[in-house]
Design a protein around this nucleic acid. Sequence first.
DNA 1: CCGACTGTACCGACCAGACGGTACAGTAAA
DNA 2: TTTACTGTACCGTCTGGTCGGTACAGTCGG
Lengths: 189, 189
Amino acid sequence: MSPAPDRNARDRILQAAEAVALREGARHLTLAAAAKEAGVSKGGVLYHFPSKHALLDGMLQRFVETVGTEIETHRARFRDLANPTLRAVNATMRARMQGPDSVRIALVASHAESPSTNAKLREVFANHWERIKAETADPEGALTIWCAIEGLQFFSLFDVWPATDEQAPTVADRIEALIDALPAATRSA
Amino acid sequence: MSPAPDRNARDRILQAAEAVALREGARHLTLAAAAKEAGVSKGGVLYHFPSKHALLDGMLQRFVETVGTEIETHRARFRDLANPTLRAVNATMRARMQGPDSVRIALVASHAESPSTNAKLREVFANHWERIKAETADPEGALTIWCAIEGLQFFSLFDVWPATDEQAPTVADRIEALIDALPAATRSA
DNA sequence: CCGACTGTACCGACCAGACGGTACAGTAAA
DNA sequence: TTTACTGTACCGTCTGGTCGGTACAGTCGG
C-alpha cells in the first residue's frame, strides 16, 4: 500500500508550534521556528500545512479536539451525577493544570494573528454551553462557575497566578463544591 | 522652566496601539501601524518609545495604572463593607465589560512578544492578592471568586462568550452574591 | 532687542534581517 | 513508477531600528 499520510509528523509539528509559542511568544511562532523545533525543514511544515493560517487552524483544531475528547471521557464518568458536563470541564482543566496548558496557547496564537477568525471556536464554546445549560436549573449559576474554571486557566496561561501552586488544585476543589451545590435540571412532565 | 513632556501624544500612541492590537491582532501591532493609527510618523512613535519593547511596556503600565486606579476608586466606595477589594475588582471589571477591554489587550500583546517578561505584572496581581487575602477569613473562596471575575474577562477579550450579552452583567451580579456570602476577616484579639 | 545656542518633538528615507511563501530537485518505501 | 515526504535555494514584502534633518520654543550673554 502507498505510504499513509504521516499523522505523526503532523502532530509533531503542531506540538512544536505550541512549544515555541509558549516559550518565545505567539509573535515568534514562525514557520521556520516550528520546523526547527519539530526537527523537520520549513518545506516539511509547508507540506503538511500549506500556509501559516493552516498551521494556526491546525493548532486550534488540536486544542478543540484534545480538550473535547478529554471532556467527553470525564463526562462518561460523571454520567450519573448532576451537571456532568460542567463537572467534566472542571476535571479536564484540573488535569491540564500541571504547567501552562500547551494546547490552549493555540487560542492566543490564533487571536494574535487574526482576532476575527474564531467563529469556529465560538461555536465550540457555544456547543458546550448548550449542554451545560440543559443540565441545570440555574444556567447563570453554571455560567458563573464556568467563568471560574476558565479564569483559573487564564491565570495559569499568562503565568500570573498570585497564590501558591498548591492553592490551584484547592480552587478546583472549591469549584467542584460549587457544582455540587448547583441544582440539576428539573425533569418536567 | 522646560516644557512638560507631551503626555498627550504618548497616550494617544498607547491608545492607538491598543486599538490596532484589538482589531488586527497582536501580531499586526507594528510600530508603523500604531503610528498610522495615532496620526504620527514612525519616527514620532520611536521618539516616545525608544523601542518596540518600550511600547509594549508602556501599554502594560497603562493597563496596570488604569485598572489599578479604578479598583482604588471603587474600593473607597466599599470601604465599610466586607471584602472591599474583591468587590472593587468585580465592580471595575463589570464597568469595563462594554465591548472588549481595550487596555487588557496589552496583556496579550506583551505575552505574544515575550512571555517571560511579565514579572512586573505578576507582582501587581500578587499585590492585589495580598489585600484580598487579608480581608477575608476564606482566602481560597476569595481566590475562586477572583477566578470567576477574570474568566468573565477572558471570555470577553477572546470574544467566545457563549451566552447572550445580557447574561454577562447577570454573572457579575452572581459573583457579587458570592462575595456577599464570603466571610470577612476575623479580627483576632 | 538681537543673534547664537539648546532642548523638545517630530518627520521620512533608508537598511539589514526576518518572514511567509514558491519552486524544485531529491529520496525512500510500496 | 508512483506516492509521500524532505531539503534547500530563492523572492518580495514587512519590520524594527537608525539617522539626518526640520520646526520651533525658550534663554541668555551682550
